[in-house]
Design a protein around this nucleic acid. Structure first.
Lengths: 206, 206
DNA sequence: GTCTATAAATCGATAGAC
DNA sequence: GTCTATCGATTTATAGAC
């Protein structure tokens, strides 16, 4: 037991966990949860098979940890957008630009969205649901609130805010899926997606 | 060997295959390819486990057959839209309405789209690719051609037709995924998606 | 054509040496 | 902390009876 071994071990432990999570994200996305083998993740991370179970209890725990991170990241992104002192429509524009840029540049950003899509459709994560009992901390509802603000100010077309939000989310998730799989080479112009929100009156009066 | 046994057997064989394919589609969508067990499909179809292998050689063959059907169905839907003697923008509108209606009403229609999404991202089916060497029979390119027509006639916003098509496809695939998983209860208003194509000049001059 | 039983292979999780 | 070896459970695919 050398003097600094405790701190160093904590550091190693933290690094290894991040390393495993990062590798697992790649593997989960490219193969899906069921097809992803623990040996795949171990190989990707460059460690032995058995060591995986020193840091995580099961494959599901790794997946759950990743989803937790994805939910947290999207919450923070939406909170950041909401706090900016700009018009609602500009908050949405900034959000799209930021998302497209991160997905276009960093593989892992796109992975996070695809992971969320999978977690959403599995129905195992209440924080990602769009229907049912509402909870103020859900990313979906945070977007709905921004849309409602924009409608009150006449910047966004009238109609169900939930419908607009789901269509928006669907396009983002779909685009991210196609991007990380290499089906499309780059993300489209943010303006294309902005049109979903555009009120007819805005184009008329301009 | 009774007189009509041959015809009857052919009929039985055809029915069973369709029955298995239909059950497999449900199971694949809800669990993913890897997690879908042959026993799940057999139970869903109401037949024994072993009988599956009398009609299909492997799980992959069943999946490939389903993807083949999905590609064929989308080709036909796009050909139907293209043949109608209406304006390009109306062809797209009719396409969206038809897709939303079928996905909203019949589970299997939504399944087909989700299946296509999975097949697309796996990269194993060239007919579903959006990049790379072009082939005139691909559903994606058929949509691009309709968009180009619409742009020439000023009905659709200017810009990369491929970008518009990918955004459109992404939203459809994303919405279908969320719909079949029960994440959203119903498809949104087709008009929301139509806005992606709307040229600024159209709203202005009206 | 249809079923049950079994073979063969795979994978998640654990045990124990270093 | 890290690795190798192994168990146990599950699953695909096949064999053979009816």
């Amino acid at each position: 037991m050398s003097p600094r071994s405790e701190e160093a071990n904590i550091q190693i432990k933290d690094d290894r966990q991040k390393q495993i999570l990062c590798s697992a994200l790649k593997v989960f996305i490219h193969k899906g949860f069921a097809a992803a083998k623990m040996s795949d993740i171990a190989t990707e991370a460059g460690i032995s098979y058995g060591l995986m179970y020193h840091y995580f209890q099961s494959k599901e725990e790794i997946y759950a940890e990743l989803v937790k991170g994805a939910i947290e990241a999207s919450k923070q992104a939406l909170e950041k957008a909401q706090k900016e002192e700009t018009e609602p429509i500009d908050k949405i524009r900034a959000l799209i630009v930021r998302i497209f840029a991160s997905v276009g540049q960093h593989e892992s950003a796109g992975y996070y969205f695809v992971l969320m899509m999978g977690a959403m459709t599995s129905g195992a994560y209440p924080a990602l649901s769009m229907e049912g009992p509402q909870g103020p901390g859900r990313p979906f509802e945070m977007l709905v609130r921004i849309i409602e603000d924009g409608q009150r100010k006449g910047q966004i077309m009238q109609g169900s805010p939930a419908e607009l939000a789901t269509t928006f989310f669907s396009a983002i998730l779909g685009l991210a899926s196609l991007k990380v799989s290499g089906t499309i080479a780059s993300m489209p112009d943010p303006g294309v997606l902005m049109r979903i929100f555009q009120p007819a009156s805005q184009a008329k009066t301009k």
